[in-house]
Design a protein around this nucleic acid. Structure first.
Lengths: 191, 191
DNA sequence: TGCTAAAACTAATTGTATTAGTTAAAATAA
DNA sequence: TTATTTTAACTAATACAATTAGTTTTAGCA
């Protein structure tokens, strides 16, 4: 019996998620396979099952990891600002994030079950942040909820379309975002 | 040697795309595999290669098919209306479409190459329709382009988030959409 | 020192897309 | 009508992904 040297890699979950995020950002989520991830980490695919429950488990963990990072970026951008300035600030931070970490953002949308409690919780922090920022406008009744839905729709739709190359006109995208957001919040305030 | 009867199925591409759309609408695009599609059609997976170039080719054809259907629904909804009424009408038609045919809408976003000429062309018809509807507001300069980008962002973002169960508050979604769209177009007009 | 648990491993199974080569049916040409 | 060509099915085989079962090494701890 030969003593094949099996160096105990001793992987931490965060290193695994970091490696998975790198693959996702560089090549897209469809390239985040157990085979590719294992290769990058220098281990065999079945070994990954010691850290999470298969591909579905990995995607869930990546979604939560991504939502946490996105929340972090957004909340940082909202420090010390309020009103229009705050809404514009988190809007730009949101789009910046999807540009810098497209794969992580993609992972955010690829949880096997969006109804899952942990995923919901990670996402709800972002919703609550939006609520807090929009409450500055003192909208009445359910209007805050409608406004949050609108803001999220704009940010997600804009980012998604931009990532897919959906905007073909040669016209500055940051300018578009600013104009769109300003129009929306002004329109919400007036009704 | 027995003459095994091999009934010439004589599939038309539209029947194949229809079957694929049914799978997509019922079970999601991840279930649109060559194996599942072939089973539904009563043929063997390799036979599908006579009709399109593998899974990537199928996805491209489904994307174009979906964009054409979406355009059809939107343009019908815009007949005989103008201004706010027209924008609201196509917005509702857009969201209705994604609710009735979620898999087809998903296919719209899953083309292997969004830059592909045929896919771009199918998508551009929808953009042109939006331009025509928004031109009623006589926005100046590049503002029409910004407005089209905003409208598309809202509609795509809203639909996408709704489909993924992203809106958890118990508050009517159609009402949200109407308020969001009205706020956006009013805000765009005033600047 | 010896036990236990964590985290790696190999081997084998299943399901997927894909390619190569074959054949029957239908359409077309002689 | 008969012969040829094209279309669209087929079988067989390959490559690669996820997964499961069972095994082994390493590290920490009693």
């Amino acid at each position: 019996m030969k003593m094949s040297p099996r160096p105990k890699v001793g992987l931490e979950l965060t290193e695994i998620l970091g490696a998975a995020a790198e693959i996702a950002n560089q090549f897209g989520m469809q390239e985040v396979t157990l085979a590719n991830l294992a290769k990058k980490l220098g281990i065999r695919p079945p070994s990954l099952y010691n850290h999470f429950d298969g591909l579905a488990g990995l995607r869930k963990k990546m979604a939560i990891y991504g939502l946490d990072q996105l929340y972090e970026a957004l909340s940082q951008s909202a420090i010390g600002v309020s009103g229009d300035e705050a809404v514009l600030s988190i809007s730009k931070a949101y789009v910046d994030f999807t540009r810098k970490y497209p794969g992580v953002y993609e992972a955010t949308l690829m949880a096997p079950d969006m109804e899952d409690e942990d995923v919901q919780h990670a996402g709800s922090r972002i919703v609550h942040l939006s609520v807090r920022v929009l409450q500055a406008y003192r909208l009445e009744g359910d209007t805050v909820t409608h406004a949050v839905r609108g803001l999220r729709s704009i940010l997600h739709g804009f980012s998604s379309l931009e990532q897919r190359g959906g905007f073909k006109m040669a016209l500055d995208l940051d300018e578009s975002l600013e104009i769109i957001i300003k129009a929306f919040i002004q329109g919400m305030r007036e009704n």
